[in-house]
Nucleic acid binder design. Structure first.
Length: 428
RNA sequence: GGAGAGAUGGCCGAGUCGGCUGAAGGCGCUCGCCUGCUAAGCGAGUGUAGGGUGUAAAGCUCUACCGAGGGUUCGAAUCCCUCUCUCUCCGCCA
């Protein structure tokens, strides 16, 4: 959520921002609502003041045993007026807030202006595409061939976009989670948390999933509970409504959670394999930082996420998203795209963003600086570190051998009872 | 699921028959004084948000907030209703 005062004072900038984001949102209604809201506020507050003064007067008169009936009558009328203005005010305020909640964040100056993913800017690459002396297979063929990924039964148990892992695949998934958490906690200094996997509407609004992206979420019938689409939601909201001490910043949290997404609007896209599932595992990195540090923290967070792929020895590239391709809440986003030889393409495996104070204003996360009386909003950041399912995909495709087996990266072997190669399993 | 107790400022904790209580008292914290050092002592200050005024900061001023929402009343932390959360006991359960 943007600050109204900022919108009011920077109309041209905000309009340009909306154009750059390919949005045709008209800001006029917002200004109108803001004006109405403030004039009602001035009116009702003045009336409340009068009432407060009169109430004291009544109390005084009564103490002195004098007649206050006239004043009481007058105040009855005033009370009715106040009530009706308050009612209108709350309607206007609600509408006003809804509008504000639907305006996307302003991209940082360093973000390239562009239409779609074709205008994203490649920042760097790491490693090289592996060379095969055979035709590399896509992961679904490898997984089914080894008997460790069972798409048919996943669909039978739940439906499309659900997969059953067997044996080495589930062990590998578990190993990846442990490995990632260990790297981030022991080497990068993050604190591990395990949050609720369902959250309420207020948390979803805090990080920006609601109200605009309701259709992408799974909601529990009869409850104000939503399945988390990413750990970003519960973890960023850990400090919602709190005022932190400056000495506590930056806060660096890492969390493993499953993620649930409806994938509405992507019918027919990535239907094969593990790329686009309704449920997948992810290790997330979340930071709360001082505004002046947040862009340095973003670079560090990005590097922390890249470390995982470097340790695994898998080729990737880092891409800076352009204005037209960025997420709604983000001010700047880097995607890490991993190389998938079986599909001859790069796929997003992590998205690292600085939201500046956009989420903090919604979730009301502030901090107090020594020597300053005003509280300030923190900056929030997050990134995948990494998407576990897609990492498993990358391992299968990058380390596959001609006989259909897959070599396990060195760093994961201690987590898998020193298994070196995934052989054909016992799916039955 | 059944029975009961509670929710007040950073923390503890008072709020009488509704009125000058944004909230006593204590602790903590900040600044100053005092003191070989430390401890103790003394003095002052110490919530958040929004609006108006101000070029801005400061300041001044108003409004709201005692779990949340609604009601009664000229006026509610205080009375009434609904909800949420916490705690205790019983039952059930991984």
């Amino acid at each position: 959520m943007l600050d109204v005062k900022f919108v009011r004072d920077n109309m041209e900038l905000v309009r340009r921002m909306l154009t750059n984001r390919q949005s045709d949102l008209d800001l006029e209604p917002l200004l109108k609502l803001d004006e109405t809201r403030r004039s009602l506020l001035v009116d009702v507050e003045e009336k409340k003041h009068r009432r407060n003064v009169a109430s004291e007067e009544i109390s005084r008169l009564k103490k002195e045993k004098q007649d206050a009936a006239g004043l009481v009558e007058e105040m009855k009328d005033l009370g009715r007026e106040i009530k009706s203005i308050d009612l209108r005010l709350s309607e206007v305020e609600h509408e006003f807030r809804e509008f504000l909640l639907n305006i996307p964040n302003v991209p940082h100056d360093s973000v390239p202006v562009g239409r779609d993913e074709k205008d994203n800017r490649e920042i760097r690459t790491w490693g090289e595409k592996p060379v095969f002396d055979f035709e590399p297979a896509p992961h679904w063929e490898i997984g089914e061939g080894l008997g460790i990924l069972d798409f048919e039964r996943g669909a039978k148990i739940a439906g499309a976009r659900f997969t059953l892992y067997w044996g080495a695949a589930s062990a590998l998934e578990r190993a990846l989670i442990c490995f990632m958490l260990d790297v981030h906690t022991k080497r990068h200094g993050y604190t591990e948390v395990m949050p609720p996997f369902m959250v309420n509407s207020s948390s979803m609004t805090g990080t920006g999933q609601l109200p605009k992206f309701k259709d992408d979420l799974f909601k529990l019938e009869g409850w104000d509970y939503w399945l988390v689409p990413t750990a970003e939601v519960p973890v960023t909201n850990i400090h919602s409504g709190e005022i932190l001490d400056e000495s506590m910043l930056p806060r660096c949290y890492t969390a493993y959670t499953p993620c649930f997404r409806s994938e509405a609007g992507s019918h027919g896209k990535d239907t094969r394999g593990l790329i686009r599932q309704h449920q997948f595992n992810k290790v997330e990195l979340v930071k709360l930082a001082r505004p002046e540090d947040s862009y340095d923290e973003l670079e560090k967070l990005l590097d922390n996420a890249e470390t995982i792929l470097r340790e695994l020895g898998i080729h990737y590239r880092v891409v800076l998203l352009c204005t037209g391709d960025m997420g709604f809440s983000s001010a700047k986003t880097y995607d890490i795209e991993v190389w998938l030889p079986g599909q001859n393409t790069y796929r997003e495996i992590s998205s690292c963003s600085n939201f500046e104070d956009f989420q903090a204003r919604r979730a009301n996360i502030r901090f107090r600086q020594k020597g300053r009386s005003r509280t300030q909003l923190v900056h929030t950041l997050n990134g995948s570190g990494l998407a576990v399912g897609r990492t498993l995909v990358a391992i299968l495709e990058n380390f596959q051998q001609e006989d259909g087996t897959v070599v396990i990266p060195e760093v994961l072997r201690p987590y898998m009872g020193n298994m070196k190669v995934i052989q054909r399993g016992v799916m039955s």
